[in-house]
Design a protein around this nucleic acid. Sequence first.
DNA 1: ATAAACTGTTTGACATATCAAACAATTTAA
DNA 2: TTAAATTGTTTGATATGTCAAACAGTTTAT
Lengths: 153, 153
Amino acid sequence: MTETWKEFEANEVTHSVAHHLVAIHEVGREYGGWARVSDIARWLGITRGSVSINLRNIKVRGLVIEDDHRQVKLSEQGLKIAQAIMAKKAAVKAFLRDVINVPEEQAEIDSCKVEHLISQSTGENLFRFIKFLTSDDPAARQALSQFRKFEDS
Amino acid sequence: MTETWKEFEANEVTHSVAHHLVAIHEVGREYGGWARVSDIARWLGITRGSVSINLRNIKVRGLVIEDDHRQVKLSEQGLKIAQAIMAKKAAVKAFLRDVINVPEEQAEIDSCKVEHLISQSTGENLFRFIKFLTSDDPAARQALSQFRKFEDS
DNA sequence: ATAAACTGTTTGACATATCAAACAATTTAA
DNA sequence: TTAAATTGTTTGATATGTCAAACAGTTTAT
């Protein structure tokens, strides 16, 4: 039981980096993917200085590229990571909210904490599970409605 | 979408502190809860120096108490936190492994990453869901077996 | 009883992540 | 075209968490 817990630090990206990537993706959405430091900072709710410094690492690691006007954009690799994270977050949030009845806001908070931590394969399993459970397979529908009753009792 | 993500840092305890608490609980199990720095360090796979420093904070925060021989033990508050974390971990792991078929080892890794992050209420919802789904309610059994087929196809 | 092993702490270093404040450069308003 | 606002960077500070190495104290073997 000595080493597994350290896997926490052994992620592709930290929570902070994950959110910088997602922020760039969202902020740059309407500008061909290009985002400015200020907008990223505003989106994340941290200072421009922090973003500036954090982007140094993120650039060095090849997750974003920069143009002449100091705008940044996700690299191919950065985009892949951001998309994977967003997909996992969506899966977790959907599970919490639509399956086990966690209130919207709490589902948002919890899925956000966890998005960059769960493994790709676990994310995929979860996705399939939700897909099944929210399908119109009668067994799925029946189980869900039973669970709702179970909850209320 | 500006502030929710920062909740990540707004946890009762960090991943590191969470694992120190659980380590003390496990290491001290056979000694009335009392644990030594060395044993904690070995259990966690980090140096004695790190544990020594980390325990300073943890003591100040009142999560552990110390005896004359420099042994430490969870305080009432520390024990509560450790138990809550262990319960959430068990729930997540059971869900991953027994419901959505994540392999044991991966379930261990992912649940370990997540244990201290999910909220109490989410943990409880998850626990009830597993309880229902692994009960002998026919709808639950039917749904699970359908999902297994769904997985294999 | 002495040598060897182990214990807990401290020090100095490093990495990440944050802030406020100051700065120069650029953009926007008037 | 000026004046005001905004931008991106840097600096110095703080907090957490880690390491290796050195130290003094305690235990354990022999």
